[in-house]
Computed example of a mutant assay.
Amino acid sequence: MKAVVLAAGKGTRLQPLTNDKPKALVEVDGRPILEHCLDSLYELDAEEFVLVVGHRKEQIIGHFGDEYRGVPITYAHQREALGLAHAVLTAEEHVDDDFMLMLGDNVFNANLDEVVARQHEDHADAAFLVEEVPWEEASRYGVCVTNDDGDILEVVEKPDEPESNLVMTGFYTFSPAIFHACRLVQASDRGEYELPDAIDLLIHSGRTISAVPAEGWRVDVGYPEDRARAERLVRAERGELGIDELDAAEQAELSSVTSAEDGD
Protein backbone atom coordinates (compact mmCIF):
# COMPACT_ATOMS: atom_id res chain seq x y z
CA MET A 1 0.00 0.00 0.00
CA LYS A 2 1.04 3.59 -0.57
CA ALA A 3 1.21 5.84 2.46
CA VAL A 4 -0.10 9.40 2.37
CA VAL A 5 1.24 11.71 5.09
CA LEU A 6 -0.35 15.10 5.73
CA ALA A 7 2.51 17.47 6.51
CA ALA A 8 1.37 20.91 5.33
CA GLY A 9 0.74 22.51 8.72
CA LYS A 10 2.27 25.66 10.15
CA GLY A 11 2.17 24.55 13.78
CA THR A 12 1.05 27.89 15.20
CA ARG A 13 0.41 26.34 18.62
CA LEU A 14 3.96 24.97 18.67
CA GLN A 15 5.58 28.40 18.55
CA PRO A 16 8.36 29.32 19.16
CA LEU A 17 9.45 25.86 17.92
CA THR A 18 7.93 26.62 14.50
CA ASN A 19 9.20 30.16 14.10
CA ASP A 20 11.72 29.04 11.47
CA LYS A 21 10.42 25.66 10.28
CA PRO A 22 7.20 23.83 9.40
CA LYS A 23 5.48 21.74 12.03
CA ALA A 24 6.60 18.46 10.45
CA LEU A 25 10.27 19.32 11.01
CA VAL A 26 9.97 20.10 14.72
CA GLU A 27 12.30 17.64 16.39
CA VAL A 28 11.30 14.95 18.86
CA ASP A 29 14.30 13.24 20.39
CA GLY A 30 16.61 14.94 17.92
CA ARG A 31 14.69 13.91 14.79
CA PRO A 32 11.83 15.59 12.89
CA ILE A 33 8.32 14.42 13.74
CA LEU A 34 7.91 13.48 10.09
CA GLU A 35 10.83 11.03 10.31
CA HIS A 36 9.06 9.25 13.16
CA CYS A 37 5.96 9.01 10.95
CA LEU A 38 7.87 7.64 7.98
CA ASP A 39 9.65 5.08 10.17
CA SER A 40 6.28 3.77 11.38
CA LEU A 41 4.99 3.53 7.81
CA TYR A 42 8.22 1.90 6.63
CA GLU A 43 7.63 -0.85 9.18
CA LEU A 44 4.21 -1.37 7.56
CA ASP A 45 5.89 -2.00 4.18
CA ALA A 46 4.76 1.22 2.54
CA GLU A 47 5.59 1.00 -1.15
CA GLU A 48 5.64 4.78 -1.67
CA PHE A 49 5.34 7.87 0.52
CA VAL A 50 3.05 10.64 -0.73
CA LEU A 51 3.83 13.72 1.35
CA VAL A 52 1.24 16.49 1.29
CA VAL A 53 3.20 19.68 1.93
CA GLY A 54 2.37 23.35 2.07
CA HIS A 55 3.85 25.81 4.55
CA ARG A 56 7.65 26.03 4.07
CA LYS A 57 7.44 23.01 1.79
CA GLU A 58 10.91 23.62 0.39
CA GLN A 59 12.41 22.81 3.81
CA ILE A 60 10.68 19.43 3.89
CA ILE A 61 11.64 18.64 0.29
CA GLY A 62 15.21 19.71 0.97
CA HIS A 63 15.43 17.50 4.06
CA PHE A 64 13.96 14.31 2.59
CA GLY A 65 14.61 14.52 -1.14
CA ASP A 66 13.11 11.83 -3.35
CA GLU A 67 13.34 8.81 -1.05
CA TYR A 68 13.46 7.73 2.58
CA ARG A 69 15.05 4.44 3.63
CA GLY A 70 14.87 3.32 0.02
CA VAL A 71 11.14 4.08 -0.36
CA PRO A 72 10.33 6.67 -3.07
CA ILE A 73 8.73 9.96 -2.07
CA THR A 74 6.19 11.90 -4.13
CA TYR A 75 5.16 15.40 -3.06
CA ALA A 76 1.66 16.87 -3.37
CA HIS A 77 1.23 20.59 -2.71
CA GLN A 78 -1.70 21.86 -0.65
CA ARG A 79 -1.72 25.49 -1.73
CA GLU A 80 -4.25 26.68 0.86
CA ALA A 81 -4.81 25.45 4.40
CA LEU A 82 -8.42 24.38 3.86
CA GLY A 83 -8.61 21.34 6.13
CA LEU A 84 -7.68 17.68 6.16
CA ALA A 85 -10.30 16.56 3.61
CA HIS A 86 -8.91 19.15 1.21
CA ALA A 87 -5.37 17.91 1.96
CA VAL A 88 -6.38 14.32 1.19
CA LEU A 89 -7.76 15.41 -2.18
CA THR A 90 -4.39 16.90 -3.14
CA ALA A 91 -2.96 13.35 -3.01
CA GLU A 92 -5.70 11.78 -5.16
CA GLU A 93 -3.78 11.85 -8.44
CA HIS A 94 -1.01 9.80 -6.85
CA VAL A 95 -3.24 7.07 -5.35
CA ASP A 96 -5.24 4.45 -7.24
CA ASP A 97 -5.88 1.74 -4.62
CA ASP A 98 -6.29 1.24 -0.88
CA PHE A 99 -3.82 3.40 1.02
CA MET A 100 -2.60 4.32 4.48
CA LEU A 101 -3.05 7.86 5.80
CA MET A 102 -1.13 9.36 8.69
CA LEU A 103 -1.28 12.85 10.13
CA GLY A 104 2.28 14.12 10.06
CA ASP A 105 2.26 15.56 13.57
CA ASN A 106 1.84 12.25 15.42
CA VAL A 107 4.44 10.01 17.03
CA PHE A 108 3.25 6.40 17.37
CA ASN A 109 4.19 3.17 19.02
CA ALA A 110 0.94 1.34 18.55
CA ASN A 111 -0.83 -1.50 16.75
CA LEU A 112 -0.94 0.19 13.34
CA ASP A 113 -0.48 -3.18 11.65
CA GLU A 114 -3.88 -4.26 12.97
CA VAL A 115 -5.54 -1.37 11.14
CA VAL A 116 -3.95 -2.43 7.86
CA ALA A 117 -4.95 -6.06 8.48
CA ARG A 118 -8.54 -5.05 9.30
CA GLN A 119 -8.82 -3.12 6.04
CA HIS A 120 -7.85 -6.23 4.10
CA GLU A 121 -9.83 -8.75 6.15
CA ASP A 122 -13.08 -6.77 6.16
CA HIS A 123 -12.67 -5.42 2.62
CA ALA A 124 -13.50 -2.13 4.31
CA ASP A 125 -13.70 1.33 2.80
CA ALA A 126 -11.98 2.71 5.87
CA ALA A 127 -10.34 1.48 9.04
CA PHE A 128 -8.83 3.64 11.73
CA LEU A 129 -7.20 3.51 15.12
CA VAL A 130 -9.29 4.92 17.98
CA GLU A 131 -8.57 5.65 21.61
CA GLU A 132 -10.22 7.11 24.68
CA VAL A 133 -8.85 10.43 25.91
CA PRO A 134 -9.74 12.55 28.97
CA TRP A 135 -13.10 14.21 28.39
CA GLU A 136 -11.58 17.67 28.65
CA GLU A 137 -9.27 16.87 25.70
CA ALA A 138 -11.85 15.30 23.37
CA SER A 139 -12.75 18.59 21.69
CA ARG A 140 -9.22 18.66 20.19
CA TYR A 141 -9.96 15.65 17.99
CA GLY A 142 -12.37 13.93 15.66
CA VAL A 143 -14.84 12.36 18.10
CA CYS A 144 -16.55 9.02 17.43
CA VAL A 145 -20.17 8.65 18.52
CA THR A 146 -21.11 5.03 19.21
CA ASN A 147 -24.15 2.97 20.11
CA ASP A 148 -24.42 0.61 23.08
CA ASP A 149 -22.73 -2.13 21.05
CA GLY A 150 -19.72 0.05 20.32
CA ASP A 151 -20.54 0.51 16.63
CA ILE A 152 -19.47 3.88 15.25
CA LEU A 153 -22.52 5.86 14.20
CA GLU A 154 -20.96 9.25 13.54
CA VAL A 155 -17.72 11.18 13.70
CA VAL A 156 -17.59 14.88 14.54
CA GLU A 157 -14.54 17.11 14.11
CA LYS A 158 -13.54 19.10 17.23
CA PRO A 159 -17.03 19.47 18.74
CA ASP A 160 -17.56 22.18 21.35
CA GLU A 161 -19.49 19.70 23.52
CA PRO A 162 -18.26 16.16 22.75
CA GLU A 163 -20.79 13.34 23.06
CA SER A 164 -17.95 10.86 23.53
CA ASN A 165 -14.31 10.72 24.59
CA LEU A 166 -13.50 8.11 21.91
CA VAL A 167 -11.40 9.80 19.26
CA MET A 168 -9.58 9.06 16.03
CA THR A 169 -5.84 8.98 16.44
CA GLY A 170 -4.38 10.15 13.17
CA PHE A 171 -3.80 6.80 11.44
CA TYR A 172 -6.24 5.40 8.89
CA THR A 173 -6.52 3.15 5.88
CA PHE A 174 -8.93 4.04 3.09
CA SER A 175 -10.20 2.80 -0.22
CA PRO A 176 -10.38 5.40 -3.02
CA ALA A 177 -14.02 5.97 -2.02
CA ILE A 178 -12.74 8.55 0.47
CA PHE A 179 -11.86 10.92 -2.37
CA HIS A 180 -15.46 11.12 -3.56
CA ALA A 181 -16.59 11.71 0.03
CA CYS A 182 -14.02 14.48 0.46
CA ARG A 183 -15.36 16.21 -2.65
CA LEU A 184 -18.88 16.19 -1.17
CA VAL A 185 -17.88 17.75 2.15
CA GLN A 186 -19.13 21.25 2.89
CA ALA A 187 -16.92 23.77 4.65
CA SER A 188 -17.30 23.70 8.43
CA ASP A 189 -17.88 26.70 10.68
CA ARG A 190 -14.08 26.98 10.81
CA GLY A 191 -14.03 27.41 7.04
CA GLU A 192 -12.28 24.07 6.54
CA TYR A 193 -13.16 20.81 4.81
CA GLU A 194 -12.99 18.29 7.65
CA LEU A 195 -11.87 14.68 7.23
CA PRO A 196 -14.27 13.39 9.92
CA ASP A 197 -17.13 14.88 7.88
CA ALA A 198 -15.97 12.83 4.88
CA ILE A 199 -15.77 9.69 7.02
CA ASP A 200 -19.25 10.46 8.33
CA LEU A 201 -20.50 10.56 4.75
CA LEU A 202 -19.01 7.10 4.19
CA ILE A 203 -20.76 5.80 7.30
CA HIS A 204 -24.16 7.18 6.31
CA SER A 205 -23.84 5.91 2.74
CA GLY A 206 -23.55 2.36 4.08
CA ARG A 207 -19.83 1.92 3.46
CA THR A 208 -17.92 -0.52 5.65
CA ILE A 209 -15.96 1.29 8.37
CA SER A 210 -13.79 -0.60 10.85
CA ALA A 211 -12.39 0.83 14.09
CA VAL A 212 -9.44 -0.70 15.91
CA PRO A 213 -8.87 0.15 19.61
CA ALA A 214 -5.37 1.48 20.15
CA GLU A 215 -2.82 -0.55 22.06
CA GLY A 216 0.37 1.26 22.92
CA TRP A 217 0.81 4.99 22.74
CA ARG A 218 0.78 7.95 20.42
CA VAL A 219 1.32 11.65 20.93
CA ASP A 220 -0.38 14.29 18.81
CA VAL A 221 2.33 16.97 18.90
CA GLY A 222 0.17 20.07 18.96
CA TYR A 223 1.80 22.01 21.78
CA PRO A 224 5.34 22.26 23.22
CA GLU A 225 4.31 20.11 26.18
CA ASP A 226 3.20 17.36 23.76
CA ARG A 227 6.66 17.36 22.20
CA ALA A 228 8.21 17.00 25.65
CA ARG A 229 5.87 14.10 26.44
CA ALA A 230 6.72 12.31 23.19
CA GLU A 231 10.42 12.67 23.96
CA ARG A 232 9.97 11.18 27.42
CA LEU A 233 8.16 8.15 26.01
CA VAL A 234 10.74 7.59 23.27
CA ARG A 235 13.60 7.87 25.75
CA ALA A 236 11.88 5.59 28.24
CA GLU A 237 11.49 2.91 25.56
CA ARG A 238 15.24 3.06 24.97
CA GLY A 239 15.86 2.72 28.70
CA GLU A 240 17.24 6.25 29.08
CA LEU A 241 14.48 7.23 31.51
CA GLY A 242 13.28 5.17 34.44
CA ILE A 243 9.61 4.33 34.78
CA ASP A 244 9.49 6.44 37.94
CA GLU A 245 10.43 9.51 35.87
CA LEU A 246 7.15 9.27 33.91
CA ASP A 247 3.72 10.32 35.05
CA ALA A 248 0.99 7.76 35.70
CA ALA A 249 -0.57 8.10 32.24
CA GLU A 250 2.78 7.64 30.51
CA GLN A 251 3.56 4.59 32.64
CA ALA A 252 0.23 3.06 31.64
CA GLU A 253 0.93 3.71 27.95
CA LEU A 254 4.32 2.03 28.12
CA SER A 255 2.80 -0.89 29.99
CA SER A 256 0.21 -1.35 27.24
CA VAL A 257 3.00 -1.64 24.67
CA THR A 258 4.73 -4.29 26.76
CA SER A 259 1.47 -6.20 27.24
CA ALA A 260 0.74 -6.16 23.51
CA GLU A 261 4.24 -7.42 22.70
CA ASP A 262 3.93 -10.19 25.28
CA GLY A 263 0.65 -11.21 23.66
CA ASP A 264 2.42 -11.59 20.31
Rank of each mutant, 00 (worst) to 15 (best):
L6H: 12
A7L: 09
T18Q: 05
P22V: 14
V26D: 02
D29W: 01
G30N: 12
I33E: 09
L34D: 13
D39E: 12
Y42T: 07
D45E: 12
G54F: 00
Y68L: 07
G70D: 09
G70I: 11
V71Q: 08
H77M: 13
R79K: 10
H86L: 10
A91K: 14
A91C: 11
E92T: 04
E93S: 13
H94Y: 13
M100Q: 09
V107Q: 04
N109H: 14
A110Q: 07
L112C: 02
L112V: 03
V115I: 03
R118K: 01
L129V: 05
E132W: 12
V133P: 13
W135D: 10
E137M: 14
R140L: 12
G142Y: 09
G150M: 01
V156D: 15
P159S: 03
E161C: 04
E163D: 05
V167W: 06
T169Y: 14
G170Q: 14
P176I: 06
F179L: 04
C182R: 07
D189L: 11
E192Y: 06
L195E: 06
D200E: 07
D200G: 08
L202Y: 02
H204R: 13
S210I: 00
E225M: 11
L233P: 13
R238A: 02
L246A: 12
S255W: 05
S256W: 04
T258S: 12
E261A: 08
